[in-house]
């Protein structure tokens, strides 16, 4: 994805959020308790965001027109390929962790099983995703999961009397 597309997506996201907020704030009926409606400030901020998004769009396009005139020389060296591979690996790790978290929270929400079991599976799978699969890493992941989940449960419930999910 090039820079311009990325910035365009940002502007679109901001415009969508601001429009949604404005529309929702506009639905609030005026109250007798206050002369100023509860939707007044959200509407002002939404309009400001729309104006800023448009300004940003103009700035991006005007800057892009200038930079287009300059020639760009792209090299594909071995280190660049390594960097790209490393970046892709990083993205995969992030995607895996986010997926594990979503499944973890979804299971908590639906009350499918006990917290400790879910937490244990989450830490185990996440450590594996971070360190790669091998018999050594499975052993390390299992030990880390048992110790950390055990410590978390004891620490939160016994020492700080926090209620766990």
């Amino acid at each position: 994805m090039n820079n311009q597309t990325k910035e365009l997506m940002l502007v679109v996201a901001c415009l969508a959020i601001a429009t949604l907020v404005y529309w929702s704030a506009n639905q609030i009926p005026s109250s007798l308790l206050a002369k100023t409606s509860a939707g007044l400030v959200p509407k002002i901020v939404a309009i400001s965001l729309i104006l800023l998004a448009i300004l940003h769009l103009i700035l991006v396009f005007s800057a892009n027109r200038t930079s287009n005139t300059q020639t760009s020389n792209s090299e594909t060296s071995t280190s660049a390929i390594d960097d790209r591979t490393e970046r892709n690996d990083g993205r995969i790790r992030i995607a895996l962790l986010v997926s594990f978290m979503i499944i973890f929270v979804l299971c908590l929400e639906l009350g499918l099983t006990e917290f400790w079991l879910l937490a244990l599976s989450f830490v185990f799978l996440s450590v594996l995703a971070m360190s790669g699969i091998s018999s050594r890493s499975i052993l390390i992941a299992a030990s880390i999961a048992v110790v950390s989940v055990g410590a978390t449960i004891v620490f939160f419930t016994k020492i700080f009397t926090v209620i766990l999910p």
Partner: peptide
């Protein structure tokens, strides 16, 4: 790499702890 999953678990517990809401 070993700390990240543990700290994420603490985040989950921390976010839940204040209001007891998923």
């Amino acid at each position: 790499k070993f700390l990240v999953p543990i700290l994420l678990l603490l985040c989950v517990v921390g976010a839940f702890a204040v209001n007891n809401r998923v």
